[in-house]
Design a binder for these strands. Structure first.
Lengths: 256, 256
DNA sequence: TTTACATTGCGTTATTATGACACAATGATA
DNA sequence: TATCATTGTGTCATAATAACGCAATGTAAA
């Protein structure tokens, strides 16, 4: 079986290919039907859900490793990812469950780089939910979106990592624009507001929100109105990418 | 010679004690005579200055490793340190200069964990300059304070790390109080303002600064006035540690 | 066809935060 | 005793923010 060979190779010789004791974990956020979502893998070796993660090739920048994982799970290229924190408790090792997993697929090993402790770096990405084709990997039986409000049991400290990522995301919202990767190209003001409300987990005043967002200049109003909608139809907007990028660097200059 | 044995041991067997491919580097900031300073080591193996760094014991939290380095270099215990960023360019390796260094002390090695690429995590600490006794280590010939405005040539990407640390420090100033570890227990309002001005590298209005800082409630005014000073004598203040800690978590709520 | 109504778009007003500056009090030094 | 740089406290104009009003819109119900 191809899987078995691949798995054995990974446990026996992976350390010749990858750096030891260090990994990246990706927090891939999406937004759909007014819910913030995150992409998780079902880890065969643990029987639990896990953040999509990976290792760093010996000659690879860590940022590239994170992008590689993102692309493998979602098919998305050139998405901006940013490290937000290192997680380094000494008990970050899955020796026992890894051994059990190997036993289950008929492999027995005494030593492996995979049995050691791993320090991991969390990376966040905000992606367009509708463009993602979740793909499981050799070590996973499934790859699915979960609502932030309904997270399953997860391995190791992955729930803690997710919690910190959310805190980080909320903080960033005050200094950086959000939405370019999370929303479709055309969107309405209520769409954007709901995104902000979902991430911040609080209601915002519709009129003040509009004034502030418009004030940043990151939006372009289109001469197009949403159709087939109850009540007054809202205008479509799209991001002014140049000004959006500027705001990413310079900050937003207001609080919500 | 004791050094030689210790060095050889480190290069040959360090990987049994420490995690591989990963290190911590400490940015130890101090404040003295209106100058922001940073503690640097003169690395024997490179003949250049370097950030005090170290490796992570196999059963040690990375935060502990950073604190260990801080204590070894400064003698200071229980100082709060915080990770701020990971540096992971693929060329972060000192194989060549390490080999040259070993040759100089009469050791020749083909392989060593120390020749590999290292990913490093930057940690910042703000310490009381007057309480520090800089101590060099086995691999360093000196340990000294440098003014931020006058940094010597440094190994690898350490100058870049310092630059990012300063950016980070400036950003933090808007959300968190600073000074508890940098200033002596008693200090005057002009002292505190000069600290802020030095870090931010800009002048602040004396009266507005005072209003805002007082407004946070992190200061306690003492019934004591600075003596032997020209012109009107300023009051002493000290930090209200409880409210200071609160502000660390909740943020300051204003801009300077 | 008309009416009701939730929603949008564009406003106003009160409150608060901020930046810029005025002035008297202080106390060592001339 | 006078000088003067510095401190402590306060004022005022301006900008940012929160809270709210109201007409326009267009589907859905009457």
């Amino acid at each position: 079986m191809i899987f078995e060979k691949e798995i054995k190779e990974h446990y026996l010789k992976g350390h010749e290919k990858y750096l030891r004791n260090i990994s990246v974990d990706c927090l891939i956020f999406g937004f759909h039907e007014n819910e913030l979502k995150i992409l998780l893998l079902h880890a065969k070796y643990a029987g639990l859900w896990a953040l999509p993660g990976g290792f760093i090739l010996k000659e690879e920048h860590m940022d590239e490793a994170a992008k590689r994982v993102l692309e493998q799970r979602t098919g998305l290229k050139s998405i901006y990812m940013e490290q937000f924190r290192v997680f380094s408790q000494p008990n970050r090792s899955t020796k026992k469950i890894n051994k059990q997993f190997l036993k289950n697929v008929g492999i027995e090993l005494e030593e492996s780089w995979m049995f050691e402790r791993f320090i991991t770096v969390g990376y966040t990405a905000l992606v367009d939910f509708t463009k993602v084709q979740p793909v499981a990997d050799t070590f996973s039986s499934a790859c699915e979106w979960f609502n932030i409000s309904n997270i399953p049991e997860m391995i190791l400290d992955h729930k803690e990592i997710l919690k910190k990522a959310l805190e980080n995301l909320r903080l960033q919202l005050n200094y950086q624009p959000v939405g370019y990767n999370l929303l479709p190209e055309k969107f309405t003001m209520p769409d954007l507001q709901k995104l902000y409300e979902t991430i911040l987990d609080k209601k915002l005043d519709r009129r003040n929100f509009q004034r502030k967002i418009i004030g940043t200049g990151i939006l372009k109003k289109l001469n197009e109105i949403k159709k087939a909608v109850a009540h007054k139809a809202p205008s479509y907007y799209k991001f002014d990418l140049r000004k959006y990028q500027k705001a990413l660097k310079a900050g937003m200059g207001f609080e919500l």
